[in-house]
């Protein structure tokens, strides 16, 4: 088909005209695609709604049988034993202890690295180093679990005599290494958002790089750096495979990081591996535990989101 032409009434020259049929079809396609793209974006809201619905409906069934008070105050967690106890704080303690160990590793190391990358390293150095950090983030978590259980724990046991084969210390440290790239990238992002004028002002006063970093850049990027820590915490709390493999599955109050203890996530894995009938109380516990985990990470994520918005507004 040859495109239609018609004489221009002014000049008599033959001019290309656009087929009205094509334009009409084009308009229909445009409208359809607009809807299709919107629905794809809206799907993400449905995913969240699905998560909330599943966790909430199954947790409500759980709380019909177990009171919230005992869920929050009991100090034992024995859903599959004869003498059933449902004290979520047992699992929460394991989760918090391992995550805090992770933060103890990742915060100092991540902050130093972020300052180094943002304030010290030349651009080429920075662009060479960052991909290596990304590689750490790309390692499958199950591989880190193996590494923690079968490589690091035996080495640590040489130096720490009381260290059990399953413990919270080594998985915590490994999780710290895992969240390190993430903390570095978010906090470096915040540091680089600090305007150059502030830095120049500091240099003009005769500050060293380090002084500029600690007295100007970090205070300026404070909310963003804090957000990085919180997001790191959120990741550590939700991390599953490392603790499921290397921290043991004994649900007890985690008072000693040298011993193993179950976390929320490793408990869910433990129950999922077993043959637990649908609708049983043990089945429902993983949703109650999941709800607890979701609320914790949700709170962290929202707090971090708000903090990051804050520094974006400032600069």
């Amino acid at each position: 088909m040859v495109a239609p032409v018609s004489p221009d009434s002014r000049t008599g020259r033959l001019r290309l005209t656009v087929s009205p049929v094509f334009l009409a079809r084009r308009r229909v396609v445009d409208r359809i695609m607009r809807v299709v793209l919107f629905l794809s974006a809206a799907l993400s809201v449905l995913v969240t709604a699905g998560i909330v619905y599943v966790l909430l409906s199954e947790s409500l069934k759980f709380f019909a049988q177990v009171s919230i008070i005992s869920f929050l105050t009991d100090t034992q967690w024995t859903p599959v034993f004869q003498d059933k106890h449902f004290g979520i704080m047992t699992l929460v303690s394991g989760t918090l202890v391992s995550s805090l160990i992770a933060l103890l590793v990742a915060i100092p190391a991540g902050t130093v690295l972020a300052i180094y990358l943002s304030e010290f390293a030349r651009p080429q150095v920075r662009e060479t180093i960052k991909p290596f950090l990304e590689l750490i983030a790309g390692v499958p978590t199950v591989a880190f679990g193996y590494f923690a259980l079968l490589f690091l724990t035996p080495i640590f046991q040489i130096f720490i005599p009381g260290l059990a084969g399953f413990n919270l210390l080594v998985p915590g440290i490994v999780m710290g290494i895992m969240i390190l790239p993430y903390i570095v990238s978010v906090s470096e992002d915040a540091m680089r958002a600090v305007p150059a004028e502030l830095r120049e002002g500091a240099y003009a006063l005769g500050f060293t790089r380090l002084q500029t970093a600690t007295r100007v850049v970090i205070p300026g990027a404070f909310s963003g750096v804090t957000a990085a820590y919180i997001l790191g915490m959120s990741r550590a709390v939700g991390e599953t495979m490392v603790v499921a493999i290397a921290a043991g599955q004994q649900a007890k109050l985690a008072l000693n990081p040298l011993e193993g203890a179950a976390t929320i996530t490793s408990y869910i894995v433990q129950i999922s591996l077993g043959d637990v009938p649908h609708g049983s109380i043990a089945y429902l516990t993983i949703f109650a535990a999941g709800m607890t985990l979701f609320l914790m990470t949700f709170a962290f994520n929202i707090l971090a989101f708000w903090l990051r918005q804050k520094y974006r507004e400032v600069y």
Binding site: L55, G238, I286, G290, F294, N301, I302, F305
Partner: peptide, 15 residues
């Protein structure tokens, strides 16, 4: 979307 990116993977498993 920002929040979903931070939801632990095991929660997707529960979903």
């Amino acid at each position: 979307v920002t929040n979903l990116a931070g939801v632990p993977s095991i929660i997707y498993g529960l979903l």
